[in-house]
Write a protein that binds this DNA or RNA. Structure first.
Lengths: 214, 214
DNA sequence: CTATGTGAACAGCTTCACAGCG
DNA sequence: CGCTGTGAAGCTGTTCACATAG
C-alpha cells in the first residue's frame, strides 16, 4: 500500500461511510448503486462520491453505476479491513466495559482480544459475556502485543493517565490509538491517533443549537 | 447569537479543544498563555490559534498573550456552555448506560436528566448510581422535553431503530442530536446532528496503520 | 522586545461540466 | 441515453508576514 499521499483526508473519512452504506444496500439485496443514490443516502453530492472513489481506482461501470458487492470488497481492501483485526483495550471502567460488549466492532471485523487495567482489584477478573476476556495488568501489555501481533489499541482511561498509557502502548509497538480520554495525545509520526471526546461532541451541538435557536 | 456565518466549521470544532486545554492550564494555575503555547499543546500552529480566536472577538493582549480565566469565560459563552444544560438519552443498552455514568459530561456542564428506552423490561427501572434516573417509555419523551425545556438528546439505540427515534425526538422539539448509531440521520436544517460511529473510528486507524506500516 | 490581529498569498477541497464508455 | 471519471474553475481554510499595541 504505497499511495495515500495527495488523497484528501476528508475523502478517507468518507470512505468508511460509503462502506457502511454499501453494506446496508447489500443487506437490502441491492445489486448496483449510482453515485447519486449513494450520495443522497449520506447527504453528499454525486460528484463528491465519484471523485472520492476515483482517488482509489476505477470501480464504476458507465451506464450502470457501481456493483455493490464488488465495491464493498474493494473498499474493505483499501481500508485494510478485509481481514479480521485484533485490537486491545486499556481501561476497564464504565466506558471500557461498554466498548468490550459493543457488537458493532465485531460486525466490522474488529476483535477485542485483550483488556488491560492498572486497578489491582480488577486485574484477573473476567469481563461479562459476550466477549468475556480476562483483565490483565499493564505490565503484560508489551508481551501480549508481540505474541498476538496487535497493531491497534483503544484507550479508555482517565485523562490524567492517558498520555502515560499511550507511551506504554507505543513502546510496545502499537501503531494506532483510538483515544477516548479528553486530552491531546503526543505521539511520534509513525503512530496514528483518532480521538473521540464525548463532551466535546455535545459542546458542538450546544453551539449549533444556540446558533440555530436565537 | 447572530453570526456563526462565514466562520469555518473546523474553527468551531477547535474551539472546544481550546477550552479543554485552557481548563487544564487553569487547573495548573497558569494565568496567561500565548497562541504558540496553546497551539503546541494541541498540535496546531500559533497562527491557527490566533485566527480561530479572532473569528469570535479580540481576546488577546499584545505582549502578554491570553489571560486564561478570561478566555475560558469567553469561549464558554460562545459555545453556549456557560450555563448547565439538560440533556436526554434514548437507549439504555450497554453504551447508553456507560454514557449515563460518564463523569465527563457533568464536568463540562451537561446533565442527563431523562432516559428513555422502548424495551418494556427496562422501563420503570432505575439506572445504577451515580446519576440514577428512572427509565421511561418513548411515549413520555415529548412531555418530558417540554416540561424540562430540553434541547439536546443523545441517541444510543440500534441502527435499525435510529431514524425512527430521531424523528420522535425532532417532533418533540429536540434541536441537537448526538448520534451513536451507525447510520446517517436525515433531519431538517433546524436540527443539528453530531455523529460518533465507533467502528468507523477504528476503521480510520486501520487505514492509517496499513499506510504507515507497509 | 513580545505577542496579537489581520490582509494577502497559498494550499487544499469541492463543485462544475463534459468527454467518453457501455 | 445513463452514468462514470476527470480536468478546470471556484471556493474555503490555512499559513505567512507584518503593522501595531503594550
Amino acid at each position: 500500500m504505497a499511495k495515500a499521499d495527495h488523497i484528501p483526508a476528508p475523502a478517507i473519512r468518507r470512505l468508511s461511510l460509503y462502506l457502511r452504506q454499501l453494506e446496508t444496500f447489500d443487506g437490502n439485496k441491492r445489486r448496483t448503486v449510482s453515485s447519486r443514490v449513494l450520495g443522497q443516502a449520506l447527504g453528499l453530492t454525486d460528484a463528491q462520491v465519484r471523485k472520492d472513489l476515483a482517488y482509489f481506482g476505477q470501480f464504476g461501470h458507465p451506464g450502470i453505476g457501481y456493483r455493490v458487492p464488488e465495491l464493498i470488497q474493494r473498499v474493505r481492501r483499501i481500508l485494510g479491513t478485509d481481514k479480521k483485526a485484533k485490537v486491545l483495550l486499556v481501561g476497564a471502567g464504565n466506558l471500557g466495559r461498554a466498548l468490550i460488549s459493543y457488537r458493532g466492532f465485531g460486525k466490522r471485523g474488529f476483535d477485542i482480544v485483550a483488556v488491560f487495567d492498572n486497578d489491582r482489584s480488577k486485574v484477573g477478573k473476567e469481563t461479562p459475556p459476550p466477549n468475556s476476556v480476562r483483565i490483565r495488568g499493564l505490565d503484560d501489555l508489551s508481551a501480549v502485543v508481540r505474541s498476538h501481533g496487535i497493531r491497534v489499541g483503544i484507550l479508555a482511561v482517565p485523562a490524567d493517565a492517558a498520555q502515560g498509557v499511550a507511551d506504554v502502548m507505543v513502546g510496545a509497538g502499537i501503531r494506532g490509538i483510538l483515544n477516548f480520554a479528553p486530552v491531546t495525545l503526543h505521539v511520534g509520526p509513525e503512530v496514528g491517533v483518532a480521538s473521540v471526546d464525548l463532551a466535546v461532541q455535545l459542546e458542538q451541538l450546544a453551539f449549533q443549537v444556540s446558533v440555530l435557536t436565537p
